[in-house]
Structure formats: structure tokens, C-alpha cells
Design a protein around this nucleic acid. Structure first.
Lengths: 163, 163
DNA sequence: TTCATATCGTCTCATATGAGATTAAAAGCG
DNA sequence: CGCTTTTAATCTCATATGAGACGATATGAA
């Protein structure tokens, strides 16, 4: 008997949703990362920190973590590099000596003013592939998938639906 | 004068498409990676190799690269590990001594038969957050974004629209 | 106060990644 | 046939990642 006769309906990887999300997202991230690197010498984590600090004016590292969704270590390293480059000012938090308050210095502010239009432009180029309707729908879909993923990850730790 | 007065309309990171794609995709990948790891001890690259070899029956490493969209190194390492675990059989390509032909051994085939239903189930749980219409639309949107990204990356190397 | 515990940011270490070098084999060309 | 170029897969190395340890500080209970 032939041993490789499939017992299950084969799975087509390129139709598999997590795979498709991953491939497309990696392509987009790679493209944007290349542009940021070329023009500003910034990695994506660094770029994100500049974006949120530039928008909020002044943030603790902890708040940057919340706003960017990145973990402590990644934010910490991005902050250190940005400070080394002279783009980010760090001073002690007045009420908590463990924490620090971050703000853009003048050079950082200058880069921020360039970063934002470039980001908008790149996003516009990307979005041009979609109708406004599709763009709106995509936003909703990403929210829904995000929520569902969070629920599924939660069911992991909990014992399941009590059965 | 206040130095932090914004000169550009601030960019809201959480509304920025590449960021949103990245966050949602990482969450999905992380969830699925955890499940594959727990049940089969497989990383995502390994899982992908099993999926395509299981579906195609017999593939060269080169073909796995094409089917999975992963780069040479990642595929090479996944193949080595799968072979070490006894899940994948490698033999020399009859017409090309540099290449190798991959197929699932009996244990690999057994895992494949478990992997596919689990993947379908997880995908179904995830897709349950969306209407069939949304699911179809998402597919189209991902295709369009993928194409546009490819175009934009291409314009990089080429000199732009000549002017 | 004094001690236990929690939190902030960083460091350490083990692992994942991919560009480019490397080795072996194949293909093209004379 | 010899020689150069290309290709398959792996290896090397430099970098990115995150879990958990760590030192310093803050908070809370007694």
C-alpha cells in the first residue's frame, strides 16, 4: 500500500490565514524598516519610540511601553540608543527615582518633524492599493482578530469552558 | 517660546497601518507558535516545512523555499532539525548531487495528520470573529497590500519615475 | 521604624535571524 | 576535455529578541 496517501484533506499553506498575515506583514515591515534606516538610521523600535514621545511630548519609559506595545527590554534598548544618538533626553522622574522621563531634544524633534510626513506618505502609497471602504474594513477586521486572539490566548491559561 | 510646539500634525501610532498589522500579526503568530510548540515541539519554520512537504509528498529544499516564502537559511535549519527529530527523510536528488529530496517519514506523517486538523481548528476559532464576507475581503486586501508593497520595494532599486 | 514585597530599568544569556562566505556539484562554453 | 560561472545547501558572524536575574527604589504591613 502506498504510505503517503493523505488521511486528511491537505492544508494549503498559502491560504492559511496566520501564514498570509505573517508574509504580508513581514514584507510591509521590511519595506518601512528599510526606509527608516536609510533616511534616519532608525530601527523600527527606535522609530516607534520617537513617534510616541514626539506625539505626547513627555513620557516615562513605562508609558512608552504601553503606547508602543513593545516589551521592556526592547523599549529600554531603543531608548538607550536614541539617547546615545542625542535624539532623546532622559531625566529622573521627580516622584520616582527608579523611573525616568523622556522627551525629544532639539535634534530629535527635528527628526520627528521629518519622520511624520515620510510615514504619512508611505502609508498613503500603501493605502492607495485599497478603496477607502477596504481601508476602513481592514481596520475593523484587525481589531476583531486582535480581540479574538487575545481571548484564545486567555483560554489557554484558564482551564477552558469548565467541562 | 515653547520648544515642543508640534510643527506637524502628530502621528497616532496605534492608527498607523504598518504598526497595526505588525501588532496583530505578532499576536496571532505568538499564539499559534505556542500551540505548535506545546503539542508537537515544532517552531513555526518547522511547522511550515512539515505542512508543505506533507501536502506535496516530496519536495526539494529549493521547492520548500518557494512554497514557504522563507529564506534558504531558515529552511535549511528547519530541515536539519526535523531530520534530527526523525520527522523528515532526506535523500540525495537523483539528478543533482547538491540537492536533496525531502519527504515525511512515518513519524512525520503521523504528526502531519495531527497538525492539519489542529491548524484548521485554530484557524476556525480565529475566523469565527469575522463574517464570511469579512474573511473573503481580508484575503483580497492582503493580496492587494502584498502587491503594492512589492511595487514600492521595486521602485526603491529602480531610479524612480525618471525625473 | 523595619522588614517583606513589588516595580523600574538594565543586564545576562540562550536562541532566532539573515547577509555573505564557503564547499560541492552542475551547467555553459570553447 | 578543461575552465569559468552558477547553483544548492550549509556555515560563520554580527545583530535582534525576550525570559529571567539583578540592583535600586518605592510601597505596604507590622
Amino acid at each position: 500500500m502506498p504510505p503517503s496517501k493523505p488521511l486528511v484533506e491537505p492544508l494549503i499553506l498559502r491560504d492559511f490565514l496566520p501564514y498570509r498575515l505573517s508574509v504580508v506583514t513581514e514584507a510591509v515591515s521590511s519595506l518601512f524598516a528599510t526606509r527608516y534606516q536609510e533616511r534616519f538610521g532608525l530601527s523600527i523600535p527606535e522609530w516607534r519610540v520617537v513617534a510616541v514621545v514626539g506625539q505626547q511630548g513627555e513620557l516615562s519609559t513605562q508609558q512608552v511601553i504601553e503606547h508602543t506595545g513593545m516589551d521592556r527590554v526592547r523599549v529600554s534598548r531603543a531608548v538607550i540608543r536614541l539617547a546615545d544618538k542625542g535624539l532623546l533626553e532622559r531625566r529622573a522622574h521627580p516622584q520616582d527615582q527608579r523611573a525616568q522621563v523622556l522627551r525629544l531634544g532639539e535634534p530629535g524633534r527635528a527628526i520627528y518633524e521629518e519622520i511624520v510626513p515620510l510615514a504619512r506618505d508611505l502609508q498613503a502609497q500603501l493605502s492607495a492599493a485599497l478603496t477607502p471602504e477596504e481601508l476602513r474594513t481592514l481596520g475593523e477586521i484587525l481589531d476583531k482578530i486582535g480581540h479574538r486572539t487575545h481571548e484564545m490566548a486567555g483560554e489557554e491559561e484558564a482551564g477552558g469552558p469548565g467541562g
